[in-house]
């Protein structure tokens, strides 16, 4: 039985190669993976390629249901490093092939469910808040000076 499965596996691999070769002829380019910020990822690349969805799934349950807010496998942190803009361009959205996640997911034809609710881009902390009223912290909206307002005025950024 195992032998048969092995043979089937080989046949499947051969077919996949053929299909890939055919694909190359039809000029489906390999995904161009956008460059990330930072020196290295939180896990080795091959571990990430294979298991990123497991890390994210684990993290999402830990964070939402238990209130654990470690950063290592957090989607926010992924996006913070990996979703980067080319000079002079805005950050790519998830429906663009320049978006880190979409680049591979489009190629692999795997639908991402994350960005139905999550923002697909990191917060742009460098951007002056006044230019983007949607991210204006609530403290700055109030009429009186509060601790929050002071923090905002001091750091130009809402406390996390």
């Amino acid at each position: 039985m195992r032998g048969l499965i092995g043979h089937l596996g080989q046949a499947l691999a051969a077919l996949t190669l053929l299909a890939a070769a055919g694909g190359a002829q039809a000029e489906v380019p390999l995904p161009k993976i956008p460059k990330a910020k930072g020196e290295k990822c939180v896990e080795p690349t091959d571990v990430m390629r294979r298991n990123h969805m497991k890390f994210l799934l684990h993290q999402r349950d830990d964070t939402l249901r238990r209130g654990i807010r470690t950063k290592k496998h957090s989607l926010k942190e992924c996006l913070g490093c990996h979703v980067t803009a080319e000079p002079g361009k805005p950050l790519p959205t998830a429906d663009s092939p320049d978006h880190f996640c979409s680049a591979c997911h489009r190629y692999a034809a795997v639908k991402i469910d994350c960005f139905g609710c999550h923002n697909d881009r990191p917060e742009q902390s460098g951007q002056p808040l006044a230019q983007n009223p949607r991210t204006l912290p609530d403290a700055a909206v109030g009429r009186r000076v509060t601790v929050e307002t002071l923090k905002v005025l001091a750091t130009g950024e809402e406390a996390r």
Binding site: D138, A139, G142, R143, T146, E148
Partner: peptide, 10 residues
Amino acid sequence: ACVEACAAEG
């Protein structure tokens, strides 16, 4: 946020 805003409102 609501608590903060209510306080800020006085």
